[in-house]
Each structure stands twice: as C-alpha cells, then as structure tokens.
Simulated assay, not measured.
Amino acid sequence: MPVDALQVKGLHRSYGSVRAVDDVSFTLPEGGSLGIVGESGSGKTTTARIVVGLERADEGEVLVGGLPRTGRTRGRAARLARARQVQMVFQDPYLSLDPRTGVEAALRETLRLHFPDRDHTKRVRELLDQVGLGTRAADALPRQLSGGQRQRVAIARALAVEPAVLVLDEAVAALDVSVQAQILNLLADIREQTGIGYLFITHDLGVVRCVTDEIVVMRHGRIVEAGPTAEVLAAPRHAYTRLLLESVPRPGWDPEAIAAHRRAL
C-alpha cells in the first residue's frame, strides 16, 4: 500500500491572540505536487515553516513517509536524517547562499555533512546537470550569477540531500516571467525523474495552475477550499477563491471593484 510523502493533521499555531494557522490538514502523495495559495497573512508560509521544522506547531502533527516529525529530535545523526526528509527553497536564494562560497563548494559542503562517505565529485556534476547549470558555473560566486541561476543552485543544494518533499516558498516570485517558466519546467522535469513531492507556497494562481495537481486555499489561517487544481480553478465554490481569481490582471480588470469585494468578505 503506497505511503503518502507528507501528511499534515490538525495544525494550529498562534502568536498571542492571532491564529496564524487554525486546524490545517492536507495530504501530499508520493511524487505529487500541491499548492497552498492565499494572500499575505493567510497562514501559508507559517504552515510551510512548520512542515520544514523552522517553527513548532501548538497542536497537530506532520508525518513524512508515515512517520511523525513534529516531536523533539535528539542526537546529530537523527537531526540530519530529519533535515533530509524535507527541504525548502526560498524566494530570494541570495539570502540563503554564502556570498563567499562558490557553487561547487556549497554543494560539496552539503554533501560532506550528510553523506561523508560518498563520491562528492560525481554527485556535484550530477546535481549541476540536473538543474541545468553544468560545470561552467561550478566556480562562480552567488553575485556572479543571475537570479535564475542562483535559484537553480538553491534547488540543487536542496536536492543534494535526496529529500522526499521539497517546499518552494514563493520560489519564482522574484524572477522575470521568462525565467519563471524555465524554473517551473525544470521542476516539472525533476519531479518526473525523481518522484519527489512538491509543496508550493504562492499567491500566484498561474504558478499553481501550471505545476500542481492539488490546491489548498487559505484565508486567515484556515483552509477555505481544497481539491484538484483544475477543478477548483475552473469552478471555485468559495467566495474567497473567486476573489483570488478575479484579482489576476486581465483585460477589463477593475482593481477598485476587487478591493470592494475583498472588504465585503
């Protein structure tokens, strides 16, 4: 019987009187791609940070491959094993890359930490090829790379530890549209090759439409709608989902009417 790559059950997270995440549950099948969408303050990024382990839930459970990861982990080996399960790619890779460390050195550092007994030279070449960089970028520093190239490095570093789930938090939001398309196509190819599961955190319904199988719509920390991406975007049942679709710029787009609709919800 197949085991889901990721299960999130009844997550709650509050900051004082603010409920950032309120009873959030969803499932990501092995090799699947799920998008969590919503405006700023919807709770989608807090949910992602709990899944990765950067924040702790007040209540609820996160399971990867059927095994819980919300409890405390003791010992270096156990912490590294847990880190390998889920990796995260952020919106701005420059902030997560050491400006003094070249591409190959960054990948080698990650590989030495997690797989000290493997052939790192071969694996670095494989990772560079996998993200479409090649060996020409191996010695480059982050400042010598374009935004799209830096994001490819961040993806390669995340893939180096062979995670079951890759969380992408607005990972293409800062890129030009043409570069966004290149990165999304790259991610689609990697998913097909490896069977990795993707959790996309985004406000961009165009990204969700292109690369996810399932969608979760969040507002004020709660899930208001969920289901197959194509079905939800074609015939949304919740007024907030319809508002998000109306907010996508297009001919005849009326931002004032949309703002009035938002205030009425």
Rank of each mutant, 00 (worst) to 15 (best):
D169L: 12
N185S: 07
A164R: 15
E59I: 04
D117T: 13
R191A: 08
D22T: 09
R123H: 13
A158F: 08
T47G: 02
H220C: 11
T241R: 08
P251S: 02
V224A: 05
L107F: 06
I155C: 14
G71K: 15
A260L: 15
G75R: 02
T212S: 15
T47I: 05
R100C: 04
I36G: 04
L265E: 05
P163Q: 14
D4L: 13
A160W: 06
G252Y: 01
I190N: 01
P163C: 10
E55N: 03
V124E: 10
G10K: 10
V21N: 14
A156C: 04
D117C: 13
A230D: 13
Y94K: 01
E30L: 15
L127W: 04
D254P: 02
K9H: 11
G221Y: 03
R191S: 10
T194E: 10
P251D: 03
R191M: 13
G221R: 05
V51R: 06
S25W: 04
L111T: 00
L159D: 01
A81R: 15
S33D: 01
E109A: 15
A140V: 00
L11D: 04
H261D: 02
Q193V: 15
T212N: 08
D22Y: 01
V217W: 04
V172K: 04
E30C: 13
D176Y: 01
A106S: 15
S40R: 09
R72P: 00
E61V: 00
L63G: 07
A230W: 01
T121V: 06
Y15H: 03
G60F: 05
E126Q: 15
Q7I: 03
L67D: 00
R13Q: 06
A239I: 09
A57I: 07
D117L: 15
L187P: 15
E104W: 01
A48E: 11
G206I: 03
D189N: 05
E61H: 03
A173S: 15
Q193R: 12
A77P: 02
E104H: 07
R219K: 07
R84Q: 13
P29T: 09
A230R: 14
H120V: 12
T101K: 09
P142M: 07
Y240S: 07
P99R: 06
T27Y: 01
I183N: 08
V86C: 03
T110F: 00
T46R: 11
T110M: 08
P93A: 11
H12P: 00
Y94T: 14
S42W: 07
A264L: 13
I215M: 13
T110E: 04
G43W: 04
H261C: 05
D254K: 04
V51C: 09
F115S: 04
L67H: 04
R262T: 07
T229S: 11
V131N: 13
A230K: 11
V89C: 08
A235T: 11
P255M: 02
L113R: 15
G71M: 12
E55Q: 08
T135M: 09
G197A: 15
I155D: 09
T101H: 02
D189Q: 14
A230H: 09
